[in-house]
């Protein structure tokens, strides 16, 4: 990809210290894996770190900071962030809960799990609780854990053979 002419004026508008020292250290670890002139290779990792820093979702300011840090056009970072489902570009709760509703899990009763959680928190799939604790991510397609259906993923950890009681236990444990 060609990269030219990041507008000087745009650069001036970017506030400093959007990314924390820790985030920058993490990004630098990833940058070390790629050639110096291929910094954009680290964009996914950088966005993940930025999202982590912000407790679960990206803001335009964070994406702009990543763009400037990696020397990419801002729009190119928006493209990546809006493409990948593990990156959130709208404000959401800090714990991401994804329930698989694909065929195997569905046969094993995933609909009841979804219904249970929706009722438990009075939110629909795609929404977050008012206290910003739980984000019920969009219904997941197959997460490749069919042998343990119904299953869900909470903050990148798989939980299998779910029952409403087990779900309560897992979710109540979260801070």
């Amino acid at each position: 990809m060609l990269r030219f002419g990041i507008n000087n004026l745009d650069m001036a508008e970017v506030k400093e210290n959007i990314l924390t020292q820790h985030t920058i250290e993490e990004i630098d670890k990833w940058l070390a894996k790629y050639p110096a002139d291929r910094k954009q290779s680290a964009v996914l990792a950088a966005l993940r770190e930025a999202q982590h820093q912000n407790k679960g979702y990206l803001t335009p300011e964070l994406m702009d900071a990543v763009a400037d840090y990696l020397g990419m056009p801002k729009i190119a970072v928006y493209e990546v962030a809006s493409f990948y489902s593990m990156l959130e570009t709208k404000a959401c709760g800090r714990h991401s809960v994804s329930i698989c509703t694909n065929i195997s899990c569905m046969l094993m009763g995933s609909d009841a799990i979804v219904e249970h959680i929706e009722k438990k928190y009075s939110i629909k799939i795609g929404e977050s609780t008012d206290d910003g604790r739980i984000f019920l991510k969009q219904e997941e397609e197959c997460l490749a854990a069919c042998c343990g259906g119904p299953m869900m993923m909470v903050d990148h950890v798989y939980y299998e053979n779910l029952t409403p009681e087990k779900v309560d236990e897992i979710l109540d444990e979260l801070d």
């Binding site: 060609l2 335009p60 056009p73 928006y78 493209e79 809006s82 493409f83």
Partner: peptide
């Protein structure tokens, strides 16, 4: 934008059916 204007301002954000062309912000 990228090749002639030298200032990439438009892009394709979102994916699949939700992909849109625009400036995002």
């Amino acid at each position: 934008g990228e090749e002639v204007a030298g200032l990439r301002e438009m892009g394709a954000t979102g994916r699949g059916e939700n992909m849109t062309i625009g400036t995002y912000i």
